[in-house]
Design a protein around this nucleic acid. Structure first.
Lengths: 223, 223
DNA sequence: ATATATTTTTAGGCATGTCTAAATTTTTAG
DNA sequence: CTAAAAATTTAGACATGCCTAAAAATATAT
């Protein structure tokens, strides 16, 4: 068995960013996109890409962006698995609200212990999704995919179920809390305004107008 | 309220080391002692002591060692609180054995989130001791003290209860596992050999000879 | 008391991960 | 097609936290 070089906390954050930006690591990602995500300068990203390429975690062609290698993708998925498991733990066991978990999970996702991850998974009952509706990879890196769409892409006069959020910033989640729009809520799309891209929806017997920005961050699936 | 400067992971490890070496931070600790504990060179310790002194976490008199300030002690206790709470979590909830928890707790103790610590404490039922018998500080930094002694200091022909371990290295704990010598076990001290400092003890109806080294690492209290 | 040994500090160097400023390559627009 | 704009990389710098080697202070032993 081959000994995996130590991957630092910083490197893990880059791998995760590249994974998310490149649609699960399948696409090539630009230096600038990574810089925005990581909140670092492009030059810092280039430096790090050289290091990750050296470790065979990404393929880097000068001026052409990077793509995760098999190894890089596998590692990114491990970090994401830990992040999402910890989120479930925080909400289910420690009574955190879904808008409070992200920051803490960002720290916990870097804890290195195979046994910890496995046992945590078992303790939580092998959950399939985190509190934001995102799928949790299993120990082999496989995870469920749903035929989810964004509310902004929904058909009018159709019924859906809310299954996830694209943006899990506290502000967005607090908005959903305010209107009791939780995952699993059934909703009907009543109309769409061409002028501003806003939607009128009905759920729990209330009618709500949501802006284009809200609609572009809420995942739903047809009933 | 005053804003506490960020304390790095490395700084936290030094604070913890000084706390343990200086008998809960009450005594002055030498540079070399810290270096041994941290497994770093004395010169690195001096560098770090300057930084900690700058942040008012230790008092450092040149060539005279360091002592924790109130702030430094309070912070060390917070780290120790987290370390011990996570150990309880790993053993009670995730089925870790007491000889496996240390390394993982060393990572988890640095996670920064007041709420996480408080909720974890509550989730575990506000435990008073960790799996090795060490007291867990409460949120204000107070913790139980027991009149424990080392087996090596025990009276012959006296009955005691095993309440903790001084050294919690995996090797020592595995030795105790082997003989089923768990915390809470009642034992009788039968004799002590002047020649090698070993003890003969009886517990669970078995008789066992333990070396000086074992005796110097097992805490007991009189029944 | 003084020479030797030990401890501690200083000085200078190195890797990590970041930055700014300048140079280079690629993309876009006229 | 070429000039300007945008993206990317290079070069050089800095803070952190560690190191080695040498100097300084303290402790120990005869």
């Amino acid at each position: 068995m081959y000994i995996c070089a130590v991957i630092t906390l910083s490197e893990e954050n880059y791998l995760k960013a590249i994974y998310h930006l490149g649609k699960r690591g399948s696409q090539s990602v630009s230096t600038n996109a990574i810089a925005r995500k990581i909140k670092a300068k492009a030059s810092s990203v280039t430096d790090m890409m050289k290091k990750l390429a050296e470790k065979d975690l990404v393929n880097h062609k000068k001026y052409q962006g990077v793509k995760l290698t098999e190894d890089g993708q596998a590692h990114a998925i491990k970090v994401i698995r830990k992040h999402r498991l910890w989120e479930v733990f925080l909400v289910e066991k420690l009574k955190f609200s879904w808008d409070e978990v992200h920051e803490v999970a960002e720290q916990l996702e870097h804890i290195k212990s195979e046994k910890l991850t496995q046992q945590l998974d078992a303790f939580l009952g092998f959950p399939e999704r985190d509190p934001h509706g995102d799928p949790i990879p299993d120990k082999d890196g496989n995870f469920a995919v749903t035929n989810k769409i964004l509310l902004s892409e929904a058909e009018v006069d159709t019924k859906y179920t809310c299954v996830g959020v694209k943006d899990s910033s506290a502000d967005f989640l607090k908005y959903l809390n305010k209107y009791n729009l939780t995952l699993g809520t059934e909703l009907e799309v009543l109309s769409r305004e061409d002028f501003d891209g806003s939607f009128s929806i009905r759920f729990n017997n209330i009618r709500l107008n949501v802006s284009k920005d809200i609609a572009a961050n809420l995942f739903i699936k047809p009933n």
